[in-house]
Design a protein around this nucleic acid. Structure first.
Lengths: 208, 208
DNA sequence: CGCACGGTTGACCTGTATCAAGCCGGGTGG
DNA sequence: CCACCCGGCTTGATACAGGTCAACCGTGCG
């Protein structure tokens, strides 16, 4: 990230619910999130929509566009957000002279691939309850990594976004959160989550 | 791929059902498939297994290992296969002087990310029948791209592998193939698939 | 003020899992 | 060479997770 800072041409603000870029639009830059959060959404030919991920500060957006010089997902801000714009042409240029930078990009892409595999596993082989638990534990881990308390955080996205990401309906997300609350694994107050029993949540993952 | 040929240190043969590399083993090389086919499998801490993809000649294996110098998936040959071994250290070296090569690697990684997003959409928002149709149409497209007939091909993997990849049980895969057969969209004879009505299969994707 | 949107909860329905039996084809050992 | 076995596959009966439809609540915004 430090090296990337030297490449930053500009920063850009994106208002809540506005797209940073859209699927189908030409790819020119990567974006490093400074502040705020995003969701990425794919839309199929038949109009099917699916949230493929949520991104928070220090994460990189736009890698999907490298292949065809065209974005394949739409990135939408979940709240007022700020990103650093990294012109891709300049990045390629600079990466010639700076091996460490080149390696960082390779790694960032590989990391996204690995992460996507984890999501595929979640979608393909977990039950709804486990997917929600896994999602919350992931958020919690992210918060720790960013220096916040692991046990309390605000969801930035709607139940519908969560459902789309986890491959279930919003009603199911809601019911499962309520059940977790009832079982005293956590408390839910609209979007505020307080985890009471991390071990219990982890245990949900190993059901049958 | 032509440029990659100049990097190939050796080729390696892998017998059917043998791993090319395992999750957790040190990452040293990428592999370009010459002949045969593979499946990639992730295993979670709880022992959950999930097939994350199937690979055929001209595809690249091992990109998941770049991030941590450790493979995160296991690649298993579905039949006797041959791969070109591309030592990663050498690839990084050569990519300094050859911008076109560097770009190719970036693209290959981006392409995998885009592909993974498509799989996520399939898993997250399609019904079982649609996932199977989508899978078969994908295979058919691949066969066309490789110069074979679109309408007839042999599955290289078991029903269980397909089910794992598509997030359903092997019985469901079997039933759906039988139903497609009954509806005269295709014929199934064990692993030999003959597509009779591509438009019909495509139409399955747009149900409800 | 009231409307729209996000969320919760209930009743009911259905797609897919589960469990179980049986088939087929190929490889092995008697 | 045949009998057997085993793994991959199909098919049926039944169970249940999660989807669907609907009613209702709270709250923030025009």
């Amino acid at each position: 990230m430090e090296q990337i800072d030297t490449l930053v041409a500009t920063t850009r603000r994106v208002r809540a619910f506005e797209p940073l870029y859209r699927a189908g639009s030409p790819f020119k830059s990567l974006y490093a999130i400074r502040l705020g959060s995003f969701k990425t959404v794919v839309v199929s030919e038949e109009g099917r929509e699916q949230v493929t991920g949520f991104q928070v500060p220090a994460e990189l957006l736009g890698l999907d566009g490298v292949d065809n010089d065209t974005h394949t997902v739409t990135a939408v801000a979940l709240e007022d957000s700020t990103v650093c714009v990294i012109p891709y042409a300049r990045l390629e240029e600079v990466s010639i002279q700076v091996p460490a930078l080149r390696r960082q990009i390779f790694r960032a892409m590989s990391r996204e691939i690995v992460h996507d595999h984890d999501v595929m596993m979640m979608l393909g082989s977990m039950r709804a309850e486990q997917r929600v638990a896994s999602f919350l534990l992931d958020l919690s881990r992210h918060h720790v990594a960013r220096g916040y308390a692991a046990s309390e955080f605000r969801l930035r996205m709607t139940r519908e976004d969560i459902g789309s990401f986890l491959g279930m309906k919003l009603e199911t997300v809601s019911r499962i959160l309520s059940r977790f609350d009832e079982d005293e694994l956590l408390t839910v107050q609209k979007r505020l989550i307080r985890i009471l029993n991390i071990d219990g949540l982890n245990a949900v993952l190993s059901y049958h």
